[in-house]
Write a protein that binds this DNA or RNA. Structure first.
Lengths: 155, 155
DNA sequence: TCTCTGACTTTGTTTCTCGAAGCTAGCTTC
DNA sequence: GAAGCTAGCTTCGAGAAACAAAGTCAGAGA
């Protein structure tokens, strides 16, 4: 079965983009990874409308990517903030991959906006596709791509 | 300078999403990585409208992610197909990262739709964020994130 | 009581996407 | 040489999504 004959209904790229592929969603996650948690901080820093922000946060919480956690500041009533769940944190490689491509092709000539380094050794981190046995970075030409057990013909 | 005080104007995640973050674009690239090259094959397999497909292919070509290459089939006039450039191929980790998250959280219980393995050893490939010195997979808690040389205060 | 604030919700307008229909250039068939 | 076929778009009208701005709401402080 060739790719063009396969159904994309259960494609995991597609299903992932159904959850995080809408406009603004990945930018909200970028901010969440940088410690942003509150409605108004997201709104001001990411720069989207409040209606869309409320919708995206609701969807991300419904998907289990964010959780709402109550908090109370002195002199304010109880509110809730949005935090990444482990499921949400697992999207980190997606964001680092987007950032890495951007640094290469559309980056500021002065260098990166955020400097991400390994805490232990101080070297800048990178995203690679690797073989778990040999730990070498692979390119698309070094892999075989075949239909897997869930491959189904297009309807 | 804290993240919330930094401008996102030259954020490379944002700039990358400006090029590939529209609806359908990453799905078109998924198909391109699987060998799809022609207008009608994209349309039928990805399942988007022709007007949007024409728009997305134009934008991807303008961004240098795809190139149009003329070809001629027996009994047809010259047409052109869309192929990934090296710049486009460098988006591979983004797609593999999306796929990997999807396999973990929204995958088909039967297994992957596409089985991607290292050609040399046959092991399934994975995406990791790593330190280039030590080649160990890192989590968000194992890195430091600081403003880089291009960090600018929000306007 | 009266105002302030964070977190939304509502409203009216603009932009995007959809499906369907139309267009175009070269090739084949009659 | 007229007529039909096909891949690759473009155009069009309708519905969906996003925008900015205004409105709501609940508790805190003055």
């Amino acid at each position: 079965m060739k790719w063009l004959e396969m159904s994309t209904e259960n494609c995991t790229v597609q299903r992932t983009l159904d959850l995080v592929g809408e406009k603004w969603t990945l930018l909200l996650l970028r901010d969440a990874f940088n410690g942003v948690r509150r409605f108004d901080d997201f709104r001001r820093h990411v720069g989207l409308s409040e209606a869309v922000l409320a919708d995206r946060l609701r969807k991300l919480a419904a998907a289990g990517i964010l959780v709402t956690v109550p908090y109370q500041e002195r002199g304010s009533r109880t509110r809730h903030e949005y935090r990444l769940t482990p499921k949400g944190r697992d999207l980190w490689p997606v964001l680092v991959a987007l950032r890495q491509w951007g640094e290469t092709y559309v980056g500021d000539p002065e260098g990166p906006v955020l400097d991400i380094r390994h805490r232990d050794c101080g070297a800048p981190v990178r995203v690679v596709v690797e073989c778990p046995d040999e730990h070498t970075a692979l390119s698309p030409t070094e892999v075989t791509v075949l239909p897997g057990p869930a491959a189904r013909p297009a309807g």
